Simulated assay, not measured.
Amino acid sequence: MKKVLAFLCAAVLLSTSARALDVDAPSALLMEKETGTVLFSKGEHEKLEPASVTKVMTILLTMEAIDAGQLSYDTVITASAHACSMGGSQIWLKEGEQLTVDEMLKAVCVVSANDCAVALGEQIAGSEESFVERMNQRARELGMNDTTFQNATGLPAAGHVTSAYDIALMSRELILHHPDIRKYTTIWMDTLRNGASQLVNTNKLIRFYEGATGLKTGSTDAAKYCLSATAERDGMELIAVIMKDATSAQRFEDAKALLNYGFSTYSLVNVTADQVLAPIPVSLGTQATVQPVIEQKSLLLEKAKAGTLTRDVTMTDHVQAPVSAGDPLGTLTVSSGEEVLAEIPILVGEEVPRITWSQMLRRLLRSAFLAG
């Protein structure tokens, strides 16, 4: 049902003026975080080198390891010779130097530190090679079909490719399920090593774009200039992906153009019925009623339509046990004028088993006793 709803949303949205928008980058994509709706795309499945935007996956796996209890922000990591040999963007770790996960995440998110990205991967998986296997496995799980990772950093390597669409998928997974990453990705300037190491964010949008929340820059001679830019306004967060732009300045201009288009054209509307959904009677159940729930919480709409919504509920008047959580009870239809924008399922909120003969007998005896 979620796929059907996503298709309906996409069909409505892609019929708008997105075709009139363009960017200089040969590959680009704009996605809304909550629904995953693509609002603009250009060469979105072209397999290109992502440079340090690769580190979105490195950061995602680090955050998942923290959630799983494998790491904590206070875990101390000792830098290996391999991690210290990376070159490129780095904080110049020395072999044997110790920093916490918190400090290394900050270095990766703010200055794209290759040495810290590899050190995190080694801590999680034992080696960078094993960590890259996890990166590719996670990519497959997310449906990143254009992607093959060869390292944890995005440093040039044969066959290390992804697409704007795939970058949006992993960026969405990170910011949707790990919002705490913002405490790193929104840093403009900071320090490490008790103030000895200065950090300035490679993502200039953090300072100069209203609502910027992240996420990751990248550039090499082959990849040129890449960016996964996230920003939030009025409760809606957008992901703008730019690949292979000609200059650093142009990637930020292209990202701003996509974000400005998204924020000026669309709104994220909370989906609720006009009235409280009353419990539905359950026949032959272990309880007398079940509470309907609306699974879909938000709907992405053109701003012109968001202010003219009507909501109509159609729902069954009773159900017969047994019922399972997620069984259909009805539909919430959201319309703008005569146009139906979405038909959202109303579902059973909890399991209700069928009453047994012994339970029914006890219920009848209790009713008779109370009546007497």
Rank of each mutant, 00 (worst) to 15 (best):
A28Q: 08
K33Y: 15
T35H: 05
T37S: 13
V38T: 09
L39F: 06
L39V: 04
F40Y: 10
F40V: 04
E44A: 15
E44I: 13
E44V: 15
E44K: 10
E44M: 14
E46S: 13
E46D: 14
L48I: 12
E49V: 13
E49I: 10
E49L: 11
P50Q: 08
S52H: 04
K55S: 09
V56K: 02
V56D: 00
V56I: 11
V56Q: 00
V56N: 01
M57T: 01
T58F: 05
L60V: 05
T62M: 09
T62S: 09
A65I: 07
Q70A: 08
L71Y: 00
Y73R: 10
T75F: 01
T78L: 10
T78K: 10
A79E: 01
A79L: 03
S80T: 15
H82Y: 14
H82F: 15
A83E: 11
A83P: 08
S85P: 12
S85I: 12
G88Y: 08
G88S: 01
S89A: 14
S89D: 15
S89C: 10
Q90C: 03
I91L: 09
W92S: 11
L93H: 09
L93A: 09
K94D: 13
K94P: 15
E95Q: 12
E95S: 12
G96A: 03
E97Y: 02
E97I: 05
Q98K: 14
Q98L: 13
L99Q: 06
T100Q: 11
T100A: 04
V101C: 07
D102M: 10
E103P: 05
E103N: 02
K106I: 06
V110W: 01
V111P: 07
V111E: 05
S112I: 07
S112H: 06
N114G: 01
D115G: 09
D115Y: 10
C116F: 00
C116V: 04
C116E: 04
A119F: 11
G121M: 12
E122I: 04
E122M: 08
Q123A: 14
